[in-house]
Design a binder for these strands. Structure first.
Lengths: 158, 158
DNA sequence: CGCATATACTTTACGCGTAAACTATCGCTG
DNA sequence: CAGCGATAGTTTACGCGTAAAGTATATGCG
């Protein structure tokens, strides 16, 4: 590199990156962190966290109750966190737990009408939020970014 | 889109994405999450977390003690978390706190020789790790990814 | 000098991520 | 039907992120 990269200046890193891999990795971390923070603030206005919103979005999209683990699988994450997540949503009256009759190990989670109404209120502002965050990239750039990110995942778990 | 995107399949999303912005955003979240998990497991082998490693890396790079807030500024994050982080590093004997004489509000954080040795042990494997995670993208792709991510940040806080 | 404001950090309260251990239920096998 | 392993979910312990409030020290201003 002839000049310091933008990221290098941002984090006041003195030495250049060891490799383009490292630079891409750190760029990824920093960018996702910034966007996540923005999304966090956005959802807070509705009394939700990003994770909670995700659960509700999945349930609405499915159109019927889902087992806890099924939800966990679809969220980028791991099992035990889902319990607390559902706990808090239940406390807010946004979902209900229901034991499965046939297999009493399974807990179905059902979205409530109240949550449906909340999601409806969020839909449009959320779309606007996405545009606000990434709308300065044109369609081709967005496609390319998505494509590179998908490729980045192909080895390790995607 | 003619066919479902890769991400859409991964998360069993039924409806297509509302916009390329949304798709890029979700791709970003998912990718960073996967890579973060891998890095977390990597650092755990050395008794560190990614955040702890970051603090140490900054201190080593600086070559001299730094005020807590200066460290916080350089980590992608916010203030109060730094206290606990330093606490835990101090407990492990990897850093030392030292009150500034001139301005007794300031706490300088100094890296210990033990931590320097630990970092030295990590350097090479970490480089390998970056290659492992992203080495299947060629140099041009990595540059482009970095560049798109930097552009993504230009509006909102970068 | 004395007090208000700012600064550097810490503390507290809370949400969520990870891993590991535990509980309850199911299904299979003898 | 007794027992064993698998499966669904919860609990616990810990680290770290956020926000908001609190403490200690410094600084500027009348």
């Amino acid at each position: 590199m002839a000049t310091d990269s933008k990221l290098q200046q941002e984090i006041k890193k003195r030495t250049p990156f060891h490799s383009p891999e490292q630079e891409a990795y750190l760029n990824l971390m920093r960018t996702s962190d910034l966007l996540q923070n923005q999304m966090g603030r956005f959802f807070r206005e509705y009394g939700l966290t990003a994770s909670q919103y995700n659960v509700l979005r999945i349930l609405r999209g499915e159109g019927q109750p889902l087992p806890s683990l099924e939800i966990a699988e679809r969220m980028i994450q791991v099992v035990p966190a889902i319990t607390g997540l559902i706990d808090r949503l239940e406390k807010q009256g946004l979902v209900e737990r229901r034991r499965c009759e046939n297999d009493r190990r399974v807990v179905f989670v059902e979205i409530t009408p109240q949550a449906i109404k909340l999601l409806a209120k969020i839909d449009k502002p959320l779309e606007d939020m996405h545009k606000h965050m990434l709308g300065h990239l044109n369609r081709g750039e967005l496609k390319q970014l998505s494509s590179l990110l998908e490729k980045a995942r192909t080895l390790d778990g995607g």
